[in-house]
Design a protein around this nucleic acid. Sequence first.
DNA 1: TCATATCTGTGACATCATTCACATATAAAA
DNA 2: TTTTATATGTGAATGATGTCACAGATATGA
Lengths: 221, 221
Amino acid sequence: MLKIALVEFFIVKYITKHIIRNDLKRLFTYRLCLIGFKRKGFDRLYSYTLGEEAGVSADQVRKDFSNYKIKGNKKGGYKIDDLLRSIDDVIKHQDEQYMILVGMGNIGRALVQYKTFKLRKMIIVASFDIDPSKQSKRFGVPVLPLEMLEDIIKKFHVHVAILAVPAISAQDVANRLIDLGIKGILNFAPVILKAPEDVIVNNINIGDELESVIYYTQKVM
Amino acid sequence: MLKIALVEFFIVKYITKHIIRNDLKRLFTYRLCLIGFKRKGFDRLYSYTLGEEAGVSADQVRKDFSNYKIKGNKKGGYKIDDLLRSIDDVIKHQDEQYMILVGMGNIGRALVQYKTFKLRKMIIVASFDIDPSKQSKRFGVPVLPLEMLEDIIKKFHVHVAILAVPAISAQDVANRLIDLGIKGILNFAPVILKAPEDVIVNNINIGDELESVIYYTQKVM
DNA sequence: TCATATCTGTGACATCATTCACATATAAAA
DNA sequence: TTTTATATGTGAATGATGTCACAGATATGA
Ligand SMILES: NC(=O)c1ccc[n+]([C@@H]2O[C@H](COP(=O)([O-])OP(=O)(O)OC[C@H]3O[C@@H](n4cnc5c(N)ncnc54)[C@H](O)[C@@H]3O)[C@@H](O)[C@H]2O)c1
Ligand SMILES: NC(=O)c1ccc[n+]([C@@H]2O[C@H](COP(=O)([O-])OP(=O)(O)OC[C@H]3O[C@@H](n4cnc5c(N)ncnc54)[C@H](O)[C@@H]3O)[C@@H](O)[C@H]2O)c1
Protein backbone atom coordinates (compact mmCIF):
# COMPACT_ATOMS: atom_id res chain seq x y z
CA MET A 1 0.00 0.00 0.00
CA LEU A 2 1.46 3.29 -1.10
CA LYS A 3 1.31 6.32 1.08
CA ILE A 4 0.02 9.31 -0.85
CA ALA A 5 0.75 12.87 0.08
CA LEU A 6 -2.31 15.04 -0.11
CA VAL A 7 -2.38 18.78 0.16
CA GLU A 8 -1.76 19.93 3.66
CA PHE A 9 -3.61 23.01 4.69
CA PHE A 10 -1.66 25.55 6.63
CA ILE A 11 -2.90 28.51 8.56
CA VAL A 12 -0.67 30.60 6.36
CA LYS A 13 -0.98 30.48 2.61
CA TYR A 14 2.00 30.02 0.33
CA ILE A 15 3.15 33.13 -1.37
CA THR A 16 3.21 33.51 -5.11
CA LYS A 17 6.29 32.67 -7.11
CA HIS A 18 8.81 35.13 -8.49
CA ILE A 19 8.76 37.47 -5.62
CA ILE A 20 11.74 39.33 -6.92
CA ARG A 21 10.83 40.56 -10.39
CA ASN A 22 13.51 40.57 -13.02
CA ASP A 23 13.12 44.21 -13.91
CA LEU A 24 13.71 45.13 -10.28
CA LYS A 25 16.74 42.87 -10.15
CA ARG A 26 18.10 44.62 -13.21
CA LEU A 27 17.68 47.95 -11.47
CA PHE A 28 19.97 46.68 -8.74
CA THR A 29 22.44 45.47 -11.37
CA TYR A 30 22.41 48.86 -13.06
CA ARG A 31 23.12 50.54 -9.79
CA LEU A 32 26.02 48.20 -9.14
CA CYS A 33 27.47 49.03 -12.56
CA LEU A 34 26.92 52.75 -12.12
CA ILE A 35 28.78 52.73 -8.84
CA GLY A 36 31.61 50.94 -10.64
CA PHE A 37 31.71 53.54 -13.40
CA LYS A 38 31.64 56.34 -10.90
CA ARG A 39 34.55 54.85 -9.03
CA LYS A 40 36.49 54.80 -12.30
CA GLY A 41 35.88 58.53 -12.61
CA PHE A 42 33.08 58.70 -15.18
CA ASP A 43 30.22 61.18 -14.91
CA ARG A 44 28.00 60.15 -17.81
CA LEU A 45 27.24 57.11 -19.90
CA TYR A 46 25.01 55.78 -22.65
CA SER A 47 22.40 53.09 -22.52
CA TYR A 48 24.63 50.75 -24.52
CA THR A 49 27.56 51.33 -22.19
CA LEU A 50 25.47 50.38 -19.22
CA GLY A 51 23.93 47.48 -21.11
CA GLU A 52 27.30 46.09 -22.05
CA GLU A 53 28.44 46.26 -18.45
CA ALA A 54 25.24 44.80 -17.02
CA GLY A 55 24.98 42.06 -19.61
CA VAL A 56 21.70 43.22 -21.17
CA SER A 57 20.77 45.00 -24.40
CA ALA A 58 20.75 48.78 -24.66
CA ASP A 59 17.07 48.55 -25.58
CA GLN A 60 16.40 46.75 -22.37
CA VAL A 61 18.16 49.44 -20.37
CA ARG A 62 16.16 52.22 -22.00
CA LYS A 63 12.92 50.29 -21.71
CA ASP A 64 13.48 49.65 -18.02
CA PHE A 65 14.13 53.33 -17.40
CA SER A 66 11.11 54.22 -19.51
CA ASN A 67 8.91 51.90 -17.46
CA TYR A 68 10.09 53.51 -14.25
CA LYS A 69 9.83 57.03 -15.72
CA ILE A 70 13.55 57.60 -15.39
CA LYS A 71 14.72 60.15 -17.93
CA GLY A 72 18.10 60.79 -19.55
CA ASN A 73 19.26 63.39 -22.06
CA LYS A 74 18.46 62.93 -25.73
CA LYS A 75 21.77 62.35 -27.48
CA GLY A 76 23.63 63.18 -24.29
CA GLY A 77 23.16 59.92 -22.46
CA TYR A 78 22.63 59.71 -18.72
CA LYS A 79 24.31 61.53 -15.86
CA ILE A 80 25.46 58.84 -13.46
CA ASP A 81 24.58 60.77 -10.32
CA ASP A 82 21.09 61.56 -11.57
CA LEU A 83 20.57 57.95 -12.55
CA LEU A 84 21.71 56.66 -9.17
CA ARG A 85 19.38 59.07 -7.44
CA SER A 86 16.47 58.05 -9.65
CA ILE A 87 17.11 54.36 -9.05
CA ASP A 88 17.43 54.83 -5.31
CA ASP A 89 14.12 56.64 -5.54
CA VAL A 90 12.40 53.73 -7.28
CA ILE A 91 13.78 51.12 -4.92
CA LYS A 92 12.86 53.33 -1.98
CA HIS A 93 16.40 53.20 -0.68
CA GLN A 94 16.22 54.56 2.82
CA ASP A 95 18.79 55.95 5.13
CA GLU A 96 18.99 53.17 7.65
CA GLN A 97 17.17 49.87 7.65
CA TYR A 98 17.42 47.75 10.76
CA MET A 99 17.30 44.00 10.62
CA ILE A 100 18.07 40.88 12.63
CA LEU A 101 19.74 37.56 11.85
CA VAL A 102 18.77 34.21 13.31
CA GLY A 103 21.26 31.31 13.32
CA MET A 104 24.87 32.14 14.07
CA GLY A 105 26.42 29.11 12.38
CA ASN A 106 28.90 29.17 9.53
CA ILE A 107 26.85 31.23 7.13
CA GLY A 108 25.31 33.42 9.82
CA ARG A 109 28.72 34.48 11.09
CA ALA A 110 29.85 35.35 7.56
CA LEU A 111 26.76 37.46 6.93
CA VAL A 112 27.00 39.35 10.20
CA GLN A 113 30.56 40.35 9.36
CA TYR A 114 29.73 41.34 5.78
CA LYS A 115 30.65 45.00 5.59
CA THR A 116 28.77 45.74 2.38
CA PHE A 117 25.46 45.48 4.24
CA LYS A 118 26.45 48.36 6.47
CA LEU A 119 27.77 50.40 3.54
CA ARG A 120 24.36 49.98 1.97
CA LYS A 121 22.66 51.14 5.17
CA MET A 122 21.36 47.71 6.05
CA ILE A 123 22.17 47.31 9.71
CA ILE A 124 21.99 43.99 11.54
CA VAL A 125 21.17 45.19 15.03
CA ALA A 126 21.33 41.79 16.71
CA SER A 127 21.64 38.12 15.96
CA PHE A 128 20.01 35.16 17.67
CA ASP A 129 20.96 31.56 18.33
CA ILE A 130 19.44 28.72 20.28
CA ASP A 131 22.86 27.53 21.38
CA PRO A 132 23.90 29.31 24.61
CA SER A 133 27.59 28.77 23.83
CA LYS A 134 27.25 31.11 20.85
CA GLN A 135 25.66 33.87 22.89
CA SER A 136 28.72 36.02 23.34
CA LYS A 137 29.41 39.49 21.99
CA ARG A 138 32.00 38.77 19.33
CA PHE A 139 31.46 39.73 15.65
CA GLY A 140 30.49 43.29 16.47
CA VAL A 141 26.88 42.25 16.94
CA PRO A 142 25.39 40.77 20.11
CA VAL A 143 24.29 37.13 19.88
CA LEU A 144 21.14 36.77 21.93
CA PRO A 145 18.77 34.00 23.04
CA LEU A 146 15.51 33.75 21.11
CA GLU A 147 13.56 34.95 24.14
CA MET A 148 14.85 38.42 23.39
CA LEU A 149 13.45 38.49 19.85
CA GLU A 150 10.37 40.45 20.79
CA ASP A 151 12.30 43.08 22.73
CA ILE A 152 14.71 43.76 19.90
CA ILE A 153 12.09 43.71 17.14
CA LYS A 154 9.96 46.22 19.05
CA LYS A 155 12.87 48.39 20.15
CA PHE A 156 14.37 48.84 16.68
CA HIS A 157 11.15 48.55 14.68
CA VAL A 158 12.65 45.65 12.75
CA HIS A 159 10.68 44.41 9.73
CA VAL A 160 13.26 42.26 8.00
CA ALA A 161 15.09 39.13 9.14
CA ILE A 162 17.84 36.96 7.73
CA LEU A 163 17.30 33.26 8.41
CA ALA A 164 20.38 31.05 8.65
CA VAL A 165 19.17 28.15 10.76
CA PRO A 166 19.12 24.46 9.78
CA ALA A 167 16.43 23.51 7.27
CA ILE A 168 14.54 21.46 9.84
CA SER A 169 13.94 24.50 12.07
CA ALA A 170 13.49 27.12 9.38
CA GLN A 171 9.69 27.06 9.13
CA ASP A 172 9.24 27.11 12.91
CA VAL A 173 11.57 30.04 13.35
CA ALA A 174 9.94 31.83 10.43
CA ASN A 175 6.49 31.39 11.97
CA ARG A 176 7.73 32.82 15.21
CA LEU A 177 9.27 35.81 13.46
CA ILE A 178 6.08 36.43 11.49
CA ASP A 179 4.05 36.33 14.71
CA LEU A 180 6.34 39.02 16.07
CA GLY A 181 5.63 41.27 13.09
CA ILE A 182 8.47 40.50 10.67
CA LYS A 183 7.34 41.30 7.09
CA GLY A 184 10.35 40.21 5.04
CA ILE A 185 12.65 37.19 5.31
CA LEU A 186 15.82 36.36 3.42
CA ASN A 187 16.07 32.60 3.87
CA PHE A 188 19.22 30.58 3.33
CA ALA A 189 17.84 27.22 4.46
CA PRO A 190 17.05 24.87 1.56
CA VAL A 191 13.30 24.83 2.09
CA ILE A 192 10.47 26.77 0.49
CA LEU A 193 9.10 28.72 3.42
CA LYS A 194 5.39 29.27 3.73
CA ALA A 195 4.16 32.65 4.82
CA PRO A 196 1.04 34.84 4.71
CA GLU A 197 0.54 37.01 1.68
CA ASP A 198 1.72 40.19 3.33
CA VAL A 199 5.07 38.64 4.22
CA ILE A 200 7.80 38.54 1.60
CA VAL A 201 10.08 35.54 1.58
CA ASN A 202 13.15 35.42 -0.60
CA ASN A 203 14.51 31.88 -0.57
CA ILE A 204 18.04 31.65 -1.77
CA ASN A 205 19.34 28.16 -2.31
CA ILE A 206 23.06 28.15 -2.88
CA GLY A 207 23.17 24.41 -3.51
CA ASP A 208 20.71 24.77 -6.37
CA GLU A 209 22.62 27.72 -7.79
CA LEU A 210 25.79 25.69 -7.82
CA GLU A 211 24.10 22.67 -9.31
CA SER A 212 22.61 24.72 -12.13
CA VAL A 213 26.07 25.99 -12.99
CA ILE A 214 27.16 22.36 -13.24
CA TYR A 215 24.13 21.61 -15.41
CA TYR A 216 25.04 24.27 -17.95
CA THR A 217 28.73 23.39 -18.05
CA GLN A 218 27.72 19.86 -18.94
CA LYS A 219 25.34 21.12 -21.57
CA VAL A 220 28.04 23.17 -23.30
CA MET A 221 30.60 20.40 -23.31
CA MET B 1 34.05 68.81 -18.87
CA LEU B 2 32.24 65.61 -18.16
CA LYS B 3 33.95 62.29 -18.51
CA ILE B 4 31.82 59.90 -20.53
CA ALA B 5 32.08 56.16 -20.27
CA LEU B 6 32.11 54.53 -23.67
CA VAL B 7 31.79 50.86 -24.33
CA GLU B 8 34.91 49.02 -23.34
CA PHE B 9 35.80 46.14 -25.56
CA PHE B 10 37.03 43.05 -23.82
CA ILE B 11 38.68 40.01 -25.27
CA VAL B 12 35.86 38.04 -23.77
CA LYS B 13 32.25 38.87 -24.55
CA TYR B 14 29.61 39.29 -21.91
CA ILE B 15 27.31 36.38 -21.57
CA THR B 16 23.59 36.63 -22.12
CA LYS B 17 21.24 37.34 -19.26
CA HIS B 18 19.09 34.82 -17.45
CA ILE B 19 21.61 32.10 -17.38
CA ILE B 20 19.55 30.05 -15.00
CA ARG B 21 16.17 29.57 -16.63
CA ASN B 22 13.16 29.63 -14.38
CA ASP B 23 11.83 26.28 -15.48
CA LEU B 24 15.14 24.70 -14.54
CA LYS B 25 15.06 26.45 -11.19
CA ARG B 26 11.60 25.03 -10.60
CA LEU B 27 12.90 21.56 -11.31
CA PHE B 28 15.36 22.02 -8.47
CA THR B 29 12.58 23.27 -6.26
CA TYR B 30 10.43 20.27 -7.08
CA ARG B 31 13.29 17.97 -6.21
CA LEU B 32 13.76 19.73 -2.91
CA CYS B 33 10.06 19.29 -2.11
CA LEU B 34 10.05 15.66 -3.23
CA ILE B 35 12.95 14.85 -0.93
CA GLY B 36 10.97 16.51 1.85
CA PHE B 37 7.87 14.41 1.14
CA LYS B 38 9.95 11.26 0.94
CA ARG B 39 11.50 12.00 4.30
CA LYS B 40 8.00 12.32 5.72
CA GLY B 41 7.26 8.80 4.48
CA PHE B 42 5.21 9.46 1.35
CA ASP B 43 5.59 7.42 -1.84
CA ARG B 44 3.28 9.23 -4.22
CA LEU B 45 1.79 12.65 -4.76
CA TYR B 46 -0.35 14.71 -7.10
CA SER B 47 0.58 17.72 -9.18
CA TYR B 48 -1.42 20.00 -6.88
CA THR B 49 0.29 18.61 -3.79
CA LEU B 50 3.68 19.35 -5.25
CA GLY B 51 2.50 22.72 -6.54
CA GLU B 52 1.20 23.73 -3.13
CA GLU B 53 4.52 22.81 -1.53
CA ALA B 54 6.66 24.44 -4.21
CA GLY B 55 4.57 27.60 -4.37
CA VAL B 56 3.42 27.22 -7.99
CA SER B 57 0.17 26.13 -9.64
CA ALA B 58 -0.64 22.51 -10.35
CA ASP B 59 -0.88 23.42 -14.03
CA GLN B 60 2.63 24.73 -13.93
CA VAL B 61 3.91 21.53 -12.38
CA ARG B 62 2.25 19.38 -15.04
CA LYS B 63 3.34 21.68 -17.84
CA ASP B 64 6.94 21.60 -16.66
CA PHE B 65 6.91 17.84 -16.56
CA SER B 66 5.23 17.74 -19.95
CA ASN B 67 7.95 19.97 -21.41
CA TYR B 68 10.65 17.71 -20.07
CA LYS B 69 8.77 14.56 -21.13
CA ILE B 70 8.38 13.42 -17.54
CA LYS B 71 5.34 11.18 -17.18
CA GLY B 72 3.09 10.33 -14.25
CA ASN B 73 0.10 8.03 -13.93
CA LYS B 74 -3.29 9.18 -15.12
CA LYS B 75 -5.46 9.51 -12.04
CA GLY B 76 -2.72 7.92 -9.94
CA GLY B 77 -0.43 10.90 -9.58
CA TYR B 78 3.34 10.59 -9.53
CA LYS B 79 5.60 8.10 -7.79
CA ILE B 80 8.11 10.16 -5.87
CA ASP B 81 11.05 7.88 -6.62
CA ASP B 82 10.31 7.83 -10.33
CA LEU B 83 9.94 11.58 -10.35
CA LEU B 84 13.22 12.12 -8.55
CA ARG B 85 14.96 9.82 -10.98
CA SER B 86 13.45 11.61 -13.98
CA ILE B 87 14.44 15.03 -12.62
CA ASP B 88 17.98 13.86 -11.87
CA ASP B 89 18.06 12.64 -15.43
CA VAL B 90 17.06 16.01 -16.86
CA ILE B 91 19.51 17.97 -14.72
CA LYS B 92 22.22 15.43 -15.56
CA HIS B 93 22.89 14.84 -11.90
CA GLN B 94 26.15 12.92 -11.82
CA ASP B 95 27.80 10.83 -9.21
CA GLU B 96 30.64 13.08 -8.19
CA GLN B 97 31.42 16.56 -9.42
CA TYR B 98 34.71 18.07 -8.35
CA MET B 99 35.14 21.77 -7.86
CA ILE B 100 37.41 24.37 -6.30
CA LEU B 101 36.85 27.49 -4.23
CA VAL B 102 38.91 30.66 -4.40
CA GLY B 103 38.93 33.12 -1.50
CA MET B 104 38.93 31.68 2.02
CA GLY B 105 37.47 34.70 3.75
CA ASN B 106 34.25 34.76 5.76
CA ILE B 107 31.97 33.43 3.10
CA GLY B 108 34.53 31.06 1.60
CA ARG B 109 35.04 29.34 4.94
CA ALA B 110 31.29 28.91 5.40
CA LEU B 111 30.87 27.40 1.94
CA VAL B 112 33.78 24.99 2.32
CA GLN B 113 32.20 23.64 5.49
CA TYR B 114 28.72 23.39 4.03
CA LYS B 115 27.85 19.71 4.27
CA THR B 116 24.93 19.80 1.85
CA PHE B 117 27.35 20.23 -1.07
CA LYS B 118 28.95 16.89 -0.27
CA LEU B 119 25.57 15.21 0.26
CA ARG B 120 24.66 16.38 -3.23
CA LYS B 121 27.90 14.95 -4.63
CA MET B 122 29.47 18.34 -5.18
CA ILE B 123 32.97 18.00 -3.80
CA ILE B 124 35.24 20.95 -3.14
CA VAL B 125 38.62 19.30 -3.64
CA ALA B 126 40.72 22.31 -2.69
CA SER B 127 40.46 25.99 -1.89
CA PHE B 128 42.83 28.82 -2.73
CA ASP B 129 43.82 32.10 -1.12
CA ILE B 130 46.39 34.75 -1.85
CA ASP B 131 47.07 35.24 1.84
CA PRO B 132 49.80 32.84 3.04
CA SER B 133 48.49 32.97 6.59
CA LYS B 134 45.31 31.22 5.44
CA GLN B 135 47.14 28.40 3.74
CA SER B 136 46.74 25.79 6.42
CA LYS B 137 44.84 22.52 6.32
CA ARG B 138 41.92 23.32 8.58
CA PHE B 139 38.30 23.10 7.38
CA GLY B 140 38.76 19.59 5.95
CA VAL B 141 39.95 21.05 2.68
CA PRO B 142 43.50 22.18 1.94
CA VAL B 143 43.97 25.92 1.43
CA LEU B 144 46.56 26.38 -1.29
CA PRO B 145 48.44 29.24 -2.98
CA LEU B 146 47.14 30.28 -6.40
CA GLU B 147 50.24 28.88 -8.08
CA MET B 148 48.80 25.42 -7.51
CA LEU B 149 45.56 26.16 -9.38
CA GLU B 150 46.72 24.53 -12.58
CA ASP B 151 47.91 21.35 -10.87
CA ILE B 152 44.66 20.81 -9.03
CA ILE B 153 42.41 21.69 -11.96
CA LYS B 154 44.25 19.23 -14.18
CA LYS B 155 44.51 16.51 -11.56
CA PHE B 156 40.82 16.45 -10.66
CA HIS B 157 39.47 17.54 -14.04
CA VAL B 158 37.75 20.48 -12.37
CA HIS B 159 35.31 22.46 -14.53
CA VAL B 160 33.49 24.47 -11.89
CA ALA B 161 34.76 27.06 -9.42
CA ILE B 162 33.24 29.04 -6.58
CA LEU B 163 34.51 32.61 -6.37
CA ALA B 164 34.54 34.28 -2.96
CA VAL B 165 37.23 36.93 -3.36
CA PRO B 166 36.80 40.71 -2.94
CA ALA B 167 34.95 42.44 -5.77
CA ILE B 168 38.06 44.27 -6.89
CA SER B 169 39.91 41.02 -7.66
CA ALA B 170 36.97 38.97 -8.93
CA GLN B 171 37.37 39.63 -12.68
CA ASP B 172 41.13 39.00 -12.58
CA VAL B 173 40.75 35.74 -10.72
CA ALA B 174 37.90 34.72 -13.04
CA ASN B 175 40.05 35.39 -16.11
CA ARG B 176 42.80 33.27 -14.68
CA LEU B 177 40.40 30.42 -13.93
CA ILE B 178 38.94 30.60 -17.42
CA ASP B 179 42.43 30.45 -18.93
CA LEU B 180 42.98 27.28 -16.96
CA GLY B 181 39.88 25.68 -18.44
CA ILE B 182 37.15 26.44 -15.90
CA LYS B 183 33.74 26.40 -17.63
CA GLY B 184 31.40 27.39 -14.81
CA ILE B 185 31.70 29.95 -12.02
CA LEU B 186 29.45 30.64 -9.06
CA ASN B 187 30.38 34.18 -8.14
CA PHE B 188 29.61 35.80 -4.78
CA ALA B 189 31.42 39.07 -5.42
CA PRO B 190 29.06 41.96 -6.18
CA VAL B 191 30.21 42.45 -9.77
CA ILE B 192 28.84 41.21 -13.07
CA LEU B 193 31.67 39.02 -14.33
CA LYS B 194 32.51 38.98 -18.01
CA ALA B 195 33.29 35.66 -19.60
CA PRO B 196 33.39 34.01 -23.03
CA GLU B 197 30.21 32.47 -24.33
CA ASP B 198 31.16 28.93 -23.48
CA VAL B 199 31.69 29.80 -19.82
CA ILE B 200 28.69 29.94 -17.52
CA VAL B 201 28.70 32.56 -14.79
CA ASN B 202 26.09 32.60 -12.08
CA ASN B 203 26.40 35.85 -10.17
CA ILE B 204 24.68 35.79 -6.84
CA ASN B 205 24.43 39.08 -5.06
CA ILE B 206 23.27 38.66 -1.50
CA GLY B 207 23.18 42.39 -0.86
CA ASP B 208 20.74 42.87 -3.73
CA GLU B 209 18.62 39.96 -2.57
CA LEU B 210 18.35 41.49 0.87
CA GLU B 211 17.60 44.93 -0.49
CA SER B 212 14.83 43.61 -2.69
CA VAL B 213 13.22 42.04 0.36
CA ILE B 214 13.31 45.44 1.99
CA TYR B 215 11.81 46.98 -1.15
CA TYR B 216 8.81 44.68 -1.07
CA THR B 217 8.22 45.04 2.66
CA GLN B 218 8.03 48.78 2.13
CA LYS B 219 5.67 48.30 -0.78
CA VAL B 220 3.24 46.25 1.28
CA MET B 221 3.23 48.62 4.21
C1' DT C 1 23.94 80.22 -35.73
C1' DC C 2 22.93 76.27 -38.33
C1' DA C 3 23.39 71.57 -39.82
C1' DT C 4 24.00 67.04 -38.59
C1' DA C 5 24.99 62.88 -36.42
C1' DT C 6 23.55 60.26 -32.74
C1' DC C 7 21.25 58.95 -28.63
C1' DT C 8 16.87 58.75 -26.12
C1' DG C 9 11.89 57.35 -25.45
C1' DT C 10 8.30 54.62 -26.58
C1' DG C 11 4.62 52.43 -29.35
C1' DA C 12 4.27 48.21 -32.26
C1' DC C 13 5.70 43.73 -32.69
C1' DA C 14 7.63 39.17 -31.41
C1' DT C 15 8.79 35.88 -28.27
C1' DC C 16 8.46 33.51 -24.20
C1' DA C 17 5.85 31.82 -20.04
C1' DT C 18 1.70 30.66 -17.70
C1' DT C 19 -3.04 29.50 -17.31
C1' DC C 20 -7.17 27.41 -19.14
C1' DA C 21 -9.89 23.75 -20.55
C1' DC C 22 -10.87 19.45 -21.90
C1' DA C 23 -10.01 14.86 -24.00
C1' DT C 24 -7.96 10.75 -22.22
C1' DA C 25 -6.57 7.23 -19.10
C1' DT C 26 -7.07 4.66 -15.04
C1' DA C 27 -7.26 3.66 -9.91
C1' DA C 28 -10.62 2.56 -6.94
C1' DA C 29 -15.20 1.21 -5.63
C1' DA C 30 -19.39 -1.27 -6.41
C1' DT D 1 -16.31 -6.88 -14.44
C1' DT D 2 -18.24 -2.48 -15.00
C1' DT D 3 -18.79 2.07 -13.54
C1' DT D 4 -17.33 6.38 -12.06
C1' DA D 5 -14.78 9.97 -10.19
C1' DT D 6 -10.58 12.11 -10.61
C1' DA D 7 -5.86 13.16 -12.12
C1' DT D 8 -2.86 13.57 -16.03
C1' DG D 9 -1.15 15.57 -20.60
C1' DT D 10 -1.24 18.99 -23.81
C1' DG D 11 -2.93 22.21 -27.47
C1' DA D 12 -5.04 26.85 -27.47
C1' DA D 13 -5.72 31.26 -25.26
C1' DT D 14 -3.99 34.58 -22.52
C1' DG D 15 -0.63 37.39 -20.36
C1' DA D 16 4.06 39.04 -19.48
C1' DT D 17 8.55 40.24 -21.03
C1' DG D 18 11.91 41.58 -24.32
C1' DT D 19 13.20 43.41 -29.02
C1' DC D 20 12.69 46.46 -32.98
C1' DA D 21 12.36 50.53 -35.30
C1' DC D 22 11.85 55.03 -35.78
C1' DA D 23 10.24 59.85 -34.46
C1' DG D 24 11.95 63.47 -31.84
C1' DA D 25 15.43 65.99 -29.21
C1' DT D 26 19.86 67.90 -28.66
C1' DA D 27 25.01 67.97 -27.97
C1' DT D 28 28.54 68.91 -30.83
C1' DG D 29 31.27 70.88 -34.41
C1' DA D 30 31.58 73.77 -38.58
N1 LIG E 1 27.29 27.03 5.33
C1 LIG E 1 26.95 27.43 4.12
O1 LIG E 1 27.80 27.80 3.33
C2 LIG E 1 25.52 27.44 3.69
C3 LIG E 1 25.25 27.74 2.37
C4 LIG E 1 23.93 27.79 1.94
C5 LIG E 1 22.91 27.52 2.80
N2 LIG E 1 23.18 27.21 4.08
C6 LIG E 1 22.04 26.94 4.94
O2 LIG E 1 22.06 27.88 5.99
C7 LIG E 1 21.61 27.27 7.19
C8 LIG E 1 22.69 27.35 8.22
O3 LIG E 1 23.85 26.71 7.70
P1 LIG E 1 25.20 26.66 8.51
O4 LIG E 1 26.20 26.00 7.65
O5 LIG E 1 25.51 28.00 9.04
O6 LIG E 1 24.79 25.66 9.67
P2 LIG E 1 25.34 25.61 11.17
O7 LIG E 1 24.93 24.32 11.72
O8 LIG E 1 26.77 25.99 11.16
O9 LIG E 1 24.56 26.78 11.88
C9 LIG E 1 23.22 26.71 12.27
C10 LIG E 1 23.06 27.58 13.50
O10 LIG E 1 21.68 27.70 13.81
C11 LIG E 1 21.50 27.51 15.20
N3 LIG E 1 20.15 27.03 15.42
C12 LIG E 1 19.66 25.78 15.26
N4 LIG E 1 18.35 25.75 15.51
C13 LIG E 1 17.99 27.00 15.83
C14 LIG E 1 16.75 27.60 16.19
N5 LIG E 1 15.62 26.89 16.24
N6 LIG E 1 16.74 28.91 16.47
C15 LIG E 1 17.88 29.63 16.39
N7 LIG E 1 19.08 29.12 16.06
C16 LIG E 1 19.12 27.82 15.78
C17 LIG E 1 22.57 26.55 15.62
O11 LIG E 1 22.87 26.67 17.00
C18 LIG E 1 23.73 26.98 14.72
O12 LIG E 1 24.51 27.97 15.33
C19 LIG E 1 21.27 25.85 6.84
O13 LIG E 1 19.89 25.76 6.56
C20 LIG E 1 22.08 25.60 5.59
O14 LIG E 1 21.47 24.63 4.76
C21 LIG E 1 24.47 27.17 4.55
N1 LIG F 1 30.75 37.71 3.94
C1 LIG F 1 29.57 37.59 3.37
O1 LIG F 1 28.60 37.22 4.01
C2 LIG F 1 29.38 37.86 1.91
C3 LIG F 1 28.09 37.82 1.40
C4 LIG F 1 27.88 38.05 0.06
C5 LIG F 1 28.95 38.31 -0.77
N2 LIG F 1 30.18 38.36 -0.27
C6 LIG F 1 31.26 38.63 -1.21
O2 LIG F 1 32.14 37.54 -1.20
C7 LIG F 1 33.46 38.00 -1.37
C8 LIG F 1 34.27 37.59 -0.16
O3 LIG F 1 33.66 38.14 0.98
P1 LIG F 1 34.22 37.87 2.43
O4 LIG F 1 33.33 38.51 3.39
O5 LIG F 1 34.50 36.42 2.59
O6 LIG F 1 35.58 38.71 2.37
P2 LIG F 1 36.94 38.42 3.13
O7 LIG F 1 37.75 39.64 3.02
O8 LIG F 1 36.66 37.84 4.46
O9 LIG F 1 37.62 37.26 2.26
C9 LIG F 1 38.23 37.47 1.03
C10 LIG F 1 39.34 36.44 0.91
O10 LIG F 1 39.85 36.47 -0.42
C11 LIG F 1 41.28 36.45 -0.35
N3 LIG F 1 41.78 37.08 -1.57
C12 LIG F 1 41.89 38.40 -1.86
N4 LIG F 1 42.37 38.58 -3.10
C13 LIG F 1 42.56 37.35 -3.62
C14 LIG F 1 43.03 36.88 -4.86
N5 LIG F 1 43.37 37.73 -5.84
N6 LIG F 1 43.11 35.56 -5.06
C15 LIG F 1 42.74 34.70 -4.07
N7 LIG F 1 42.29 35.08 -2.88
C16 LIG F 1 42.19 36.40 -2.66
C17 LIG F 1 41.63 37.18 0.91
O11 LIG F 1 42.91 36.77 1.39
C18 LIG F 1 40.50 36.73 1.84
O12 LIG F 1 40.86 35.55 2.53
C19 LIG F 1 33.38 39.50 -1.50
O13 LIG F 1 33.36 39.83 -2.87
C20 LIG F 1 32.07 39.83 -0.86
O14 LIG F 1 31.51 41.00 -1.41
C21 LIG F 1 30.43 38.12 1.06
